[in-house]
Design a protein around this nucleic acid. Structure first.
Lengths: 336, 336
DNA sequence: CCTGCAAGCTAAAACGTTATAGTAAATCTA
DNA sequence: TAGATTTACTATAACGTTTTAGCTTGCAGG
């Protein structure tokens, strides 16, 4: 079995008795525009089909400057939330004719810098980025160089850059409000100590709901670093429980899981002793002894939007800054 | 702010007062090979650095025929197992200098065909594919065209194609053996009705363990289609329980979750009334009322291996067929 | 019977690299 | 000191497209 050579445009041209240029016109759908006759169009298409022509993307993009490719930098694609988002982005992008490179920054701006360079070298047409602590400069530079870019999950307030994210303030507000309405007297929150807008907003939402409820004061606020999550969960929670909170609001999925482990271990009764609300859905939330109430992020609208915005920037050179916030949905279940 | 033009090789050449070819030699690390003097190498590298040179990947791959890119077709990247594998592959590939396109076939061979075409058109250097029902021809054709390709998770027995997968037979055997040793009298299994080797092997492992234990017979075997999982779980499980099984072995993560929902709803006591063993870890397994015993697939060895094998094929034109099986690990916990 | 214009095509340069073949000067060999 | 070899580099053709400009015809209008 000899290696079959790939079909090139000039092979088709030869077979059809026309010039390569003509074939290129036809196959890129510009037959009309270049007034190629109906007959020739049909013939060329038929031959291309018969010969299993697949255009060489490297050549196309070298010449045209477009790759029909997106770069998406998430914090970690193995995180269920981002895995679902990735899936959504993949589908919407494919529908628009784009293929996507996914990569994970691990919340490190150094790593993000390297990833972005590699994506740029690969000539991606646009970028979707989940910013992390310290990534401001990378993102500013990209934006200044007119690379189409959309921030996801975490907007930057003080930069003129498009973004798609949850309305974190309101989601958080409603979650806490719900806890209070269900009778909680002392609501605590567990959050990350991150300098990122989305986290600030979730915390603001909590604070605001507490104030509005006329609750004596902000009860307590447990911060913890990404790293030693599991270990610190113990301490943070122990402190909370000492203060006799009767409800907890978790700022993220990973925090929720860490804390649920502790709660399960200690045999704390939910919602009897402690009411709970988490962020993002998860199978674990469903199967916990009392299913967990949570803020659902609408995965498909989020991914739909983020692709739409970046593709718009790419294809229509639309540089209007577009900050889209999408509302979360509180899924109320047994834990609250 | 004017748009800064990207630095090209010829810009560097001009600045350094040498030819573009020389610059290319140096920057692709072939300075030695082409006996460029130390001094010149240093100078060129310095200038490239100063000018923030990033090679244009399209041009490179058009000329060289290599893209330093892998295509990975999973069944669904939002599935936690595959999300974790994706993460592993991403890291190992990056370490080897490759960037990867991830996509999801949804277990549809039509979709897989389209994805593969798009990846081939993008000139990926190699492919990692999770086969699905009906994908034999696609894969055979690729292999015949000498595209470096490695099957993941599910080998094809009757094709001469490299693969990396769990040793499903033995993992399954040990899981069931464990249930029996823990005192189970009637062990059932819930599996998918799929014509794929990995599923067959898991079932074979179950059968074999039952036989070897001298259990009267194969107790029962519930099949279910991927689609109506949640609905059919009810029926399958009801039937199982009618037959008074006192232990269940779940063939996959998704099956486990569907069944756990039912078990939780019905208030069946685990492991009192029913012992359980699942496949793949998951947060949900940890947080279920009794933590679930499961077969752990060693994510990092699996992803390490699969990238190694495909890169080996790419870089050393090594066409030896390499069927790697990696042992699972039974993580014993409360449910059994 | 020339002029202008539309229709339908082609020629050829360009995109930014890499790789092959080669050249000129310096050094070695004998 | 003539030839051989080595050192350090250069010229140029490719890679497979897209795109710009232009080239033939045929035909209508005057």
């Amino acid at each position: 079995m000899t290696q079959k050579r790939k079909t090139l445009i000039k092979d088709i041209a030869l077979e059809a008795g026309v010039s390569p240029a003509l074939v290129s016109f036809v196959l890129s759908g510009k037959g009309r525009e270049h007034r190629v006759s109906e007959k020739t169009v049909a013939q060329v298409v038929a031959i291309a089909d018969k010969m299993n022509y697949l255009p060489n993307a490297s050549a196309q993009s070298l010449r045209s400057g477009k790759t029909k490719t997106l770069g998406v930098v998430l914090s970690d694609i193995s995180n269920p939330f981002f895995a679902n988002i990735a899936r959504g982005i993949e589908d919407v992008a494919a529908h628009r004719g784009y293929t996507v490179f996914f990569c994970s920054s691990d919340e490190s701006s150094d790593k993000m810098g390297a990833l972005v360079s590699s994506l740029i070298a690969r000539n991606v047409d646009g970028l979707v980025i989940v910013p992390c602590d310290g990534s401001e400069n990378i993102i500013r530079r990209l934006s200044e160089n007119n690379v189409p870019i959309v921030l996801f999950d975490r907007p930057y307030r003080d930069m003129e850059i498009s973004s798609v994210s949850l309305n974190n303030f309101s989601a958080s507000y409603h979650a806490v409000e719900h806890l209070i309405k269900s009778g909680a007297q002392k609501v605590g929150m567990v959050a990350y100590d991150q300098n990122l807008v989305h986290m600030h907003d979730r915390i603001r939402g909590y604070r605001s709901a507490m104030e509005d409820a006329g609750m004596k004061s902000l009860i307590t606020l447990g911060y913890t670093k990404m790293d030693d999550l599991q270990r610190s969960a113990d301490k943070v929670l122990a402190k909370m429980l000492d203060k006799e909170v009767d409800a907890l609001f978790f700022a993220t999925n990973s925090i929720s899981l860490a804390c649920l482990h502790y709660i399960k271990d200690k045999g704390i009764e939910v919602p009897g002793q402690l009411k709970l609300v988490g962020f993002d859905g998860s199978d674990a939330f469903d199967l916990f002894s009392s299913s967990i109430t949570y803020v659902r992020q609408p995965i498909s609208s989020l991914s739909q939007k983020v692709v739409e915005v970046v593709v718009e920037m790419i294809e229509n050179k639309n540089s209007l800054v577009n900050n889209i916030q999408i509302d979360g949905e509180l899924i109320i279940r047994e834990s609250s």
